[in-house]
């Protein structure tokens, strides 16, 4: 179990696998398909103080082995979203973490509002990739003064090394490394270059490297995020020092892998080869090239030879 505590309030994650912001919806939409109780927590889609509209223009650009998404982070504003979803958050089988975006004063107002609500277990701040270290410290510190809730800071990939200490100094109780990085790709339909957030398995080495760089320097927990599509990807983050991981776009591509990854770290993972059943080691539907033979195949059934005539 991972505990992230402010001293007054504690976020307890019974499993170190979390559904990331931007992928799982606002209120457990994937509960129709997946057993979300197998996760440690769920982070909501980004929510701002005031309502935000969907982005104009192209919102999805397919990439080789990935995707670029530009939604504009639409949401109805924190008060409307709370009215709409509080009942589901209240009855969620796992802690709900709200991801907040906006200017520091807006974030602080949102945090103060959430401090009075019981449904949200923690706040995750989306740190804008244009902020300097000083601005990051100020942003986190401003929010810190307005809430007792555990505070996670999700840092932009390219600036994480520079901003991590500042976020920790500002009062973050944990860091999430990292937010999906920004990229630009050509939309095949319109022919235009579109900017947005980039997702794909190839992000993992980038994020793991940053986690590995930061864990020796910081005393607060680091949660790894980026490109996790298999339990082995999550293991790489743990080996680099992450205390938990967040899953994002894998839930769109192969939802069943979310459960496979969650189960792999639920305490039921087998660590011995002997006596293991095949499907306890590897999830069904896994690509053959990633499967290793752990138990010998049973011998073919004996078929007696036909009698000689």
């Amino acid at each position: 179990m991972l505990e992230i505590t402010t001293g007054k309030m504690t976020l307890r994650l019974s499993r170190p696998v979390i559904g990331a912001s931007g992928a799982f919806g606002f209120a457990g939409e994937y509960g129709k398909l997946l057993d979300l109780s197998l996760l440690g927590a769920l982070v909501t889609n980004p929510i701002s103080l005031k309502a935000r509209r969907a982005a104009s223009g192209t919102r999805v650009v397919p990439l080789d082995s990935g995707v670029l998404i530009h939604t504009g982070l639409p949401n109805g504003g924190i008060h409307k979203m709370h009215r709409q979803h509080a009942a589901k958050w209240r009855t969620s089988p796992i802690p709900v973490i709200m991801h907040l975006i906006g200017a520091p004063e807006d974030l602080a107002e949102c945090a103060a509002f959430l401090d009075q609500q019981a449904e949200i277990a923690a706040i995750e701040l989306g740190i804008n990739d244009t902020l300097t270290a000083r601005e990051t410290r100020t942003t986190v510190a401003t929010v810190r003064t307005r809430t007792q809730l555990p505070l996670l800071a999700k840092l932009p990939l390219y600036q994480a090394v520079n901003l991590a200490a500042a976020a920790a100094d500002g009062g973050a109780d944990a860091l999430v490394i990292a937010a999906p990085p920004r990229g630009t790709a050509r939309d095949p339909l319109s022919g235009q270059l579109i900017g947005g957030r980039v997702y794909g398995a190839w992000l993992k080495p980038l994020a793991v490297r940053v986690v590995g760089q930061l864990t020796p320097r910081l005393s607060i927990p680091i949660i790894g995020c980026g490109g996790i599509h298999h339990p082995d990807d999550a293991r790489d983050f743990f080996e680099a020092g992450a205390r938990a991981v967040q899953l994002d776009s894998v839930v769109w591509a192969r939802p069943e892998m979310v459960i496979a990854i969650a189960k792999a770290f639920s305490g039921g993972e087998l660590t011995r080869m002997s006596g293991a059943l095949a499907d306890e080691w590897r999830p069904l539907g896994e690509p053959a090239e990633r499967r290793t033979t752990l138990i010998p195949a049973p011998p073919p059934p004996h078929v007696p030879s036909p009698p000689e005539i």
Binding site: N45, A54, R59, V251
Partner: peptide, 23 residues
């Protein structure tokens, strides 16, 4: 028929704008 990454209403990438302001 916009691109639909998730199919479940979670990713917010396929929103259609309505006259009443809803998406």
């Amino acid at each position: 028929q916009p691109p639909m990454p998730c199919g479940i209403g979670a990713c917010q990438a396929c929103l259609v704008r309505l006259q009443n302001g809803d998406e």
